[in-house]
Design a protein around this nucleic acid. Structure first.
Lengths: 217, 217
DNA sequence: CTATAATCTGAACACTGTAAAGATAAAATA
DNA sequence: TATTTTATCTTTACAGTGTTCAGATTATAG
């Protein structure tokens, strides 16, 4: 018969070996599944341990505590988020308004595609303040946005943002961020109180709103 | 000497009477204090009971569960919120752009003055979906904004919003909502990573952003 | 004055995060 | 290879949580 690789850990098998072998990574994986299924606040460390097939105390050897684990998940989220913003920015070519618009779409697109991850990323109370890498990765996403604003406002990369350009940045950021939050909540309702589909929000509502995305100098 | 009213319940006295007398109201009061001190997720029902000087099981006689209590707090928040939006709207007189701008300021002002309450109000997972009164009160705030949008877009009170006017509504709402969220988080930082004061956010940053608040038809 | 209903307590249960001490196995060293 | 060291995981335990249930107490209605 097929000889099966001993200790092949694909899903969540009842582990036979005393050592897991890949616990750190698997905890990150199941943590993401849990917050997707149960929401950010539905996450529990014990449930994560359970899904990874280890005891409740095992995660402590890989993460300081529950917050530490979630910070790491949020960090990974910001990595992907920043990369997608950057890709959108590049796709905008030399047109500042287009760069900004494509970034805005990428922003909301990410939020709708990874709702739990996105919500976690902006839930400060679930992050470990002391994690410098997290702060650095999060700051990178900010700088991608700032780049497009600079281009739109003719502010050189080294100089400080002018008040006016900072106002533009705040307006654009707040707009996409607020829309993402509203879209992920229960507040946005269509006619007859029916909730919008994600598709409708992304392809109908968002374009309507982006008509009002400021791009001026 | 001064005769003291027996059982005068001003703060959190060790209650002598078996019945509290005003438990429902006091639970609402201490709940608001708790989320202010410890954040929305720092709230526990047992702590609320402790502060009210009753047993952990007592709140169940006035609220279905912890969610029920928080829903009530959020409801009261929306009452005040709606009233402040309405006042701002009225103060705008006959000028639609001014009505919108004053509402925007009132929106952010409320968020910064009552951070915990505001965050609770928009944390769907902490609300009881079945509470019709909550939904109704929350919807009222929405309609205040909608009113100003109608005025700005020349849409009569009975007709449906046009796509364009709905885009305007989404843009304005998202902008103030997103700004409020960012302002209450740890994301917004000034030069040298120093956090902005609430005063700076309200009186410097917000006006800068509102330069880009759309008001067109 | 009595019966009923509202209100609150105490004890219990099933959870939670995390700490401490010990078991196991892998890796490093001799 | 044999032994020590280190990393990883388990077991046990503790304090805290929300909520339920049976009973105690008091207010209210009849």
């Amino acid at each position: 018969m097929n000889s099966v690789k001993i200790n092949s850990r694909t899903r969540k098998p009842k582990r036979t070996a005393y050592h897991h072998g890949d616990l750190r990574q698997q905890l990150l994986t199941v943590a993401e599944q849990i917050i997707l299924e149960r929401g950010v606040d539905g996450f529990t460390l014990r449930e994560a341990a359970r899904r990874a097939g280890v005891s409740p105390a095992a995660p402590a050897h890989h993460f300081k505590d529950a917050k530490g684990l979630l910070t790491e998940v949020a960090l990974l989220g910001f990595r992907e988020f920043g990369a997608e913003l950057e890709a959108a920015d590049k796709a905008g070519g030399a047109d500042p308004a287009r760069r900004l618009r494509l970034q805005a779409i990428a922003y909301v697109n990410f939020a709708l595609k990874h709702p739990a991850r996105f919500q976690l990323m902006f839930r400060d109370d679930k992050h470990d303040d002391a994690n410098e890498e997290f702060k650095s990765v999060a700051a990178h996403s900010y700088r991608v946005l700032e780049g497009a604003i600079r281009a739109a406002s003719n502010v050189p990369p080294d100089g400080e943002l002018t008040p006016k350009s900072y106002g533009l940045l705040l307006a654009a950021w707040s707009m996409v961020h607020g829309f993402s939050h509203l879209a992920l909540g229960r507040g946005l309702r269509g006619p007859g109180q029916a909730p919008f589909t994600k598709d409708a929000m992304l392809n109908s509502l968002l374009p309507l709103m982006l008509e009002h995305l400021p791009t001026s100098k």
